[in-house]
């Protein structure tokens, strides 16, 4: 009897509970709980113990000093600004390169479009680390690419400014360049998705009403692709701002980005509260606005 009751319960509710419950519990334990721990550590005091933090002493419950340091210490403020600047420039450049590429993709024949789309997606599947590494080879002092740039520079500028090689590595320029390279597909794909959806008849309607191609682009194509621009921008900006691999390999060590700082505070300085506080600040600054935006965006879409 009880077996029958169980199977009835399972058919109606139990199986649904299992399907929702398993991933729910997993994410709560392995994603949400760790984050709560980080959040609480960010409000603790750094001590020379193991693990290197404790609650108590001067600030028994909450010690906000890590957050105060983020706001006042120029090291952290500069790191945030550098991160935001590099990620912002990278996102903007990705847009400038990616938009015409995505638009071009919608204008070629179907066969070529499939080939080109595959070429855009292919880097996704190849190692991120190796794509960064590929640029290290190109930017190095003795590389053919650097040699090419050096020759071009020396031809263009007066003799006095001539250089032996272009100092590309270990600079913000290198960081932005590699970011654009590695994140460009993240910009092209959402842009392509939103451009491809547009009805070409609307272009014709605008032309029919007296718009030249450039005006058609400004009045019809561009405004309708704004969701794609925002999606692509966020997909580039957010991971770029928290990037650790790129600044470590090609960046300027004296101008660290946030990701590097979190890792250093945690590893070398063994200051867990500080590392946690920077992580929380990064999250509040970037991830929360994104999630709110996409939440309201989904709501607005739903009401249409």
């Amino acid at each position: 009897m009880s077996a029958g009751r169980f199977s009835r319960w399972f058919d109606r509710k139990g199986w649904a509970g299992l399907i929702i419950g398993a991933p729910y519990v997993w994410l709560l334990v392995f994603f949400f709980l760790p984050f709560l721990i980080v959040l609480s550590i960010s409000l603790s005091t750094n001590t020379p113990t193991a693990p290197p933090f404790s609650f108590g002493g001067e600030h028994p419950v909450i010690n906000p000093s890590a957050y105060v340091r983020i706001l006042t210490d120029s090291l952290y403020v500069r790191a945030f600004l550098t991160s935001l600047f590099n990620a912002g420039v990278a996102a903007l450049l990705c847009l400038l390169v990616g938009y015409p590429m995505a638009l071009g993709l919608t204008r070629v024949s179907t066969t070529w479009r499939n080939v080109f789309l595959m070429l855009v997606i292919l880097p996704f599947w190849t190692s991120f680390l190796l794509r960064v590494y590929a640029w290290m080879g190109l930017m190095g002092k003795n590389s053919w690419f650097n040699g090419l740039l050096t020759d071009a520079w020396n031809i263009l500028v007066p003799m006095d400014w001539a250089v032996k090689s272009v100092p590309m590595m270990h600079s913000n320029f290198a960081v932005v360049l590699v970011m654009v390279y590695t994140y460009l597909p993240f910009m092209i794909l959402p842009l392509y998705a939103s451009l491809e959806r547009l009805d070409p008849v609307l272009d014709e309607a605008a032309m029919d009403l007296g718009s030249r191609p450039a005006q058609v682009f400004r009045d019809v194509t561009l405004p309708q692709s704004v969701p794609g621009i925002i999606a692509g921008g966020m997909l580039v900006f957010i991971p770029a701002a928290g990037e650790l691999v790129i600044p470590t390999l090609v960046g300027n060590a004296s101008q660290p980005m946030i990701g590097r700082l979190i890792s250093d505070e945690f590893g070398q300085a063994r200051d867990w509260p500080m590392a946690s506080a920077i992580a929380v600040a990064l999250l509040v600054l970037m991830v929360v606005p994104t999630m709110l935006y996409s939440h309201f965006q989904a709501k607005a879409e739903g009401s249409k």
Binding site: F31, V38, P239, E243, G259, W272, S276
Partner: peptide, 18 residues
């Protein structure tokens, strides 16, 4: 959705601390 847009450094550090 959160892990999709979470910077990897944060996920990494919170997993380690956990």
């Amino acid at each position: 959705t959160a892990p999709l847009i979470m910077p990897e450094v944060i996920t990494g550090i919170s997993s380690l601390i956990f």
